[in-house]
Nucleic acid binder design. Structure first.
Length: 583
DNA sequence: TCCCGTGGCGCG
DNA sequence: AAAGCGCGCCACGGGA
């Protein structure tokens, strides 16, 4: 390791990148972004160096892409407190309406990279890199000079924006999410394959050794074919199934569950059963179990910022679609517990706070926001309140939901004005932003063409109708964007604070952790799963109560961080249990 | 043979 | 029941 200048004095930021010769370079910056020192080192010594600096200063590590760097650091036993993910923050800043001069950011399109994809096995690990393999491993610009330049652009964009505080919070939260996603992947979700197998066997029947469908699935198929009077009916092909139904006199337009359920015919019951079992088999059956659960852990690939609203997406394993039926297979290790926590009605609470709607915030006080709405007299029943609120946030215009929404408009004018305004802006082709400044994408070229065409004198009625429909579609998107996106920001702030609290708790002794195969940080209570408004923490039994309290405390912190003193509750349902089963 | 659009359904 | 938003994955089938 060589240092090009004098020893650093407590760097706030450490910008990382590789150099042409395949080494890691680091620029140590003070809080103002002024360079304190710069150094390069052999990749083989990188993890140890990070560990040392982290213990001294816990700087914010600035890198092009968290998965590319952090997965290998975790594998080397090094956990960090904070980072700045240039790729994720670039995506936010290039589009944010709060950024008044985005020209420099937008002039660096190399940073508009797709989310990192897990490296192929054949690509050397970060610390074994040589030559071009590094580029494959690191994805978007991995070079040191590019990282330094992009970080300077991002700092300038934030500090000259109309609200640097919000963008600092948003970029910090987004970057914390990137760390959490990698840590959750490394730790994995504790998964009991034997329980999963038992559930599959109970529902699908015994699995034939020779392959072929399990017994209960096969018997459901037989009953369907018998009821259709068609021993050869194809059940897995929608067109074939539809034709077979028509031949049997079931005149449906689709084979979807809800339409089938309206029919009265002997085929309906076994067909719905077959579809349910078939879905379980193909989505989360034995093949899924063998592919995705190893050593008692399900390791999904989370994609932070993968949804335009800022929600996370996932890639592989269907991590965000785990069916409730299988939650009993999520099992704490021996001597450990799961803390399963979700926020009750996160989105309407976020809406109340964003809009400063004290009437809706009053209704939200306490456990059940929908009960509060009933108490306000807006609607008669809890079910109506739920339908009305969902309709308000999603833009329902028809049916019961569309009928109930106007009642909310009278009782909660500020909250409704916020979503109605967002919809109007979207219909006009404009941009909307979340509370912290994540801005929606603009309309597509095709959308704009359709709109301008419809305004021309010789536009046909069909063209005008289509333009109106597309405008309404976009209005529903922007209406929901502000709420869904701000809820995602709240959830990121919640998790980021929770992560810090959990990491500060004592780890189990290595002797007690002999059976644990995971990374070192997973000897502490740690996040194991996240799904929009729910987290699962895996914690040693002795720390389970403290971890549950940390989940609560973090929610209070998130509320204060985003909404200051505005009086809005975010009540949690928190359970400490051995399994994640919901009753 | 592979790619892509569609229907359907799991999650929030 | 869906409706009204955001996703990912599977199976199928048609086209390249």
């Amino acid at each position: 390791m060589t240092s090009s200048t004098s020893r650093a004095d407590r760097p706030t930021w450490v910008v990382l990148g590789r150099t042409d010769v395949g080494q890691v370079a680091a620029a140590l910056l003070d809080a103002d972004g002024a360079e304190l020192s710069q150094l390069t080192m052999a990749a083989s010594g990188f993890a140890v160096w990070v560990r040392g600096l982290e213990a001294e200063h816990a700087p914010r590590w600035v890198w092009n892409d968290a998965p590319a760097w952090y997965a290998d650091l975790l594998a080397a036993g090094v956990r960090i407190a904070r980072c700045h993910d240039l790729r994720l923050c670039h995506a936010i800043l290039r589009a944010s309406a709060l950024v008044t001069d985005a020209a420099a950011i937008r002039a660096a399109p190399a940073w508009d990279a797709a989310p990192h994809v897990a490296a192929e096995e054949s690509v050397p690990a970060l610390f074994e890199w040589e030559g071009d393999a590094v580029a494959q491993r690191l994805g978007p610009p991995a070079g040191f000079e590019e990282a330094v330049a992009e970080f300077a652009r991002q700092r300038a964009a934030i500090s000259s924006s109309t609200d640097p505080g919000r963008l600092r919070l948003l970029t910090a939260a987004e970057s914390a999410g990137a760390l959490i996603a990698e840590e959750m992947r490394a730790a994995g979700l504790p998964w009991d394959a034997a329980t999963h197998d038992r559930i599959l066997t109970e529902m699908l029947g015994e699995r034939p050794a020779a392959g072929g469908p399990p017994s209960k699935l096969a018997s459901a198929a037989d009953r369907v074919r018998a009821a259709l009077g068609d021993p050869a009916a194809g059940l897995d092909s929608q067109p074939k199934l539809l034709r077979a139904l028509h031949r049997a006199g079931v005149m449906v337009e689709s084979t979807s569950r809800w339409e089938l359920a309206e029919q009265r015919h002997p085929v309906i019951e076994p067909l719905l059963e077959y579809k349910k079992l078939s879905r379980l088999q193909s989505a989360n059956g034995w093949t899924w179990l063998a592919e995705w659960v190893q050593d008692g852990r399900f390791r999904p690939v989370y994609v932070p910022g993968g949804v335009v609203t800022g929600r996370w997406a996932s890639s592989g394993g269907g991590a965000l679609q785990l069916p409730r039926q299988l939650r009993d297979a999520v099992r704490a290790d021996a001597g450990w517990r799961l803390i399963v926590a979700d926020v009750a009605q996160l989105e309407p609470r976020v809406l109340a706070a964003m809009a400063g709607d004290t009437a809706l915030a009053d209704a939200a006080r306490g456990r059940d926001l929908y009960a509060g709405i009933v108490d306000s007299g807006a609607v008669a029943t809890r079910q109506e309140a739920k339908i009305a609120i969902l309709g308000a946030m999603y833009g329902a215009t028809t049916g019961e939901s569309g009928r109930l929404v106007p009642r909310l408009r009278r009782i909660y004018p500020r909250a409704m004005a916020l979503v109605d305004d967002a919809a109007r802006v979207g219909e006009d082709g404009g941009l909307v932003s979340t509370w912290l400044g994540r801005t929606s994408p603009g309309p597509s070229e095709g959308w704009s063409n359709v709109q301008s065409r419809a305004t021309e004198a010789d536009a046909s009625g069909a063209e005008e109708t289509r333009a109106r429909r597309w405008a309404r579609d976009r209005g529903r998107f922007t209406r929901n964007f502000v709420v869904q996106g701000t809820a995602a920001e709240w959830a990121l702030a919640w998790m980021a604070d929770l992560r810090t609290r959990l990491a500060a708790m004592p780890p189990v002794e290595p002797a007690d952790a002999a059976a644990l195969s995971g990374p070192a940080f997973a000897r502490h209570p740690h996040l194991a799963f996240f799904l929009h408004d729910e987290v699962i923490v895996h914690a040693p039994e002795a720390h389970a109560e403290a971890a549950a309290q940390a989940v609560q405390d973090a929610a209070a912190t998130a509320a204060r961080l985003l909404f200051g003193d505005f009086p809005i509750d975010f009540p949690l349902d928190v359970r400490i249990a051995r399994s994640a089963r919901k009753d």
